[in-house]
Design a protein around this nucleic acid. Structure first.
Lengths: 247, 247
DNA sequence: CCGAGGGTTTTGTCTATACATAAGCGCCGC
DNA sequence: GCGGCGCTTATGTATAGACAAAACCCTCGG
């Protein structure tokens, strides 16, 4: 094996490919290598860092997977222009979110009905007729004040176990989160004015602004559940923290 | 080299590690391997797929990077419980978003001021005093109707080039998106009631519900820009589509 | 009973090598 | 000039082997 220890000793933390990765990311993020700039070829990096090709290949593949560079055979690797589209986001389970803030979490099941999918359900869940669905309505409380109103449909054809769970004690979102894997989800986030019932349930005045989040979740092409969460007015805000790993 | 061709010929698409990856992902997502289940050891997979350890290692590392499994030395690899936290999201540039819907996009710069950071700026951008900032206010239109109101602060210490750009023609968001790389962003999404000025600018009645998105963007620990986007009421909704690649 | 130490197992990293594949480049003949 | 063929080059994939590091496990000594 060749000598790889950095004689100057600077930046000697982490493993070799971590250091190389950090190096290259630094050059890209600092703007030293602007979008379109050609990253050195693998054999050049290999010579520069005095390591094998597999090692630089791993780093470059990682950067490509993270969307920072684009690789083209025969041509080389190029810095991609930054793209907001797609990034890593965090959305928490409501129960965990409230508990995490050291507030008292409470939960109330308003209604639970099992039925064959009606026209509205079929549209929302994209299922055929005669499919069993579970319709739930519930409220979440933080420190005894209404935090959110939840209206949920669960596709029992996809989640037969849903029928056997006691949703009087465990919120459906929490249960699903922990037990059902998913492959895709879609959020529609909008603002709406509270109608009479929403206002009553959330203990706000009618017409006040509410944040409405509608989420549809799929597993392998099949709609698993659709939920509408209504948060009272300016008191709540959704926090989403991103890191750019566009794909 | 050993015989690797699949005699039955099934699932022979893609490369070896793609097939292995798809196989394992399938078992996890289908629930065949529930959360907590121990994935076969590398040497077992190696024997099962008749390939080298580097190949299965690449696959398992990828699954770990994607957050589907967790790897522990000496113990093995385990299926992680599904987590909503963090997933890939798409948010578009406003200009691109409107144009993409085949609506006419228009843009109006309301005001642009260059100043030393005042107390409010310093808090919002987390910069010291005496730092130059650019304060912008503008409106976006879709099909001649107000689509969003934008209030933006740009940290000129981080983006000196910001001073030389003509934001009367190009929206600041679009310019930044194409020219400034970022390492982290945070969104606060909430609902608010329109005050007199917002109502006037967005051509809605005072007190109506608006969707407010506040985004802070960092590059290498330094706040680059803070923007507040205000969308009029129920007419607009933010769409976020996810795939689970939690990290 | 408890804590220290050593052995074992599994993942983590790295090397050197090999062949496959895609795509740009230039040469050649027409 | 120009279309096609083949050479070259860079990446993509895969192998076999090696050592390192972490962490569980068991045993031994007090």
């Amino acid at each position: 094996m060749r000598a790889r220890s950095d004689p100057a000793g600077n930046l000697a933390n982490g493993t070799l490919h971590h250091r190389i990765r950090a190096d290259l990311e630094g050059k890209i993020l600092s703007g030293e290598w602007p979008p379109g700039h050609r990253v050195p070829f693998e054999y050049e990096l290999m010579a520069g860092y005095d390591c094998s090709r597999m090692t630089v290949n791993k780093v470059l593949s990682g950067l490509a997977a993270a969307g920072l560079i684009e690789r083209r055979r025969r041509a080389g690797s190029f810095v991609r222009r930054p793209q907001f589209q797609s990034a890593v986001l965090q959305i928490h389970d409501i129960k965990a979110e409230i508990s995490g803030r050291d507030q008292a979490y409470e939960y109330e099941l308003l209604s639970q009905r099992r039925r064959k999918a009606n026209a509205g359900d079929r549209e929302a869940l994209a299922v055929g007729p005669q499919v069993g669905i579970l319709a739930l309505r519930c409220r979440h409380f933080a420190d005894r004040r209404p935090f959110a109103l939840e209206e949920r449909l669960i596709n029992l054809a996809a989640i037969p176990a849903g029928e056997t769970i006691d949703f009087r004690t465990e919120p459906p979102g929490t249960w699903l989160l922990g037990h059902v894997p998913w492959t895709e989800a879609e959020h529609h986030i909008s603002a709406a004015e509270a109608d009479a019932e929403m206002a009553h349930r959330l203990e706000v005045v009618k017409g006040s602004a509410c944040l409405v989040v509608r989420r549809r979740t799929w597993r392998a092409g099949e709609t698993v559940t659709v939920v509408r969460l209504i948060f009272p007015g300016p008191s709540y805000h959704l926090v989403a923290r991103f890191t750019p790993s566009q794909r």
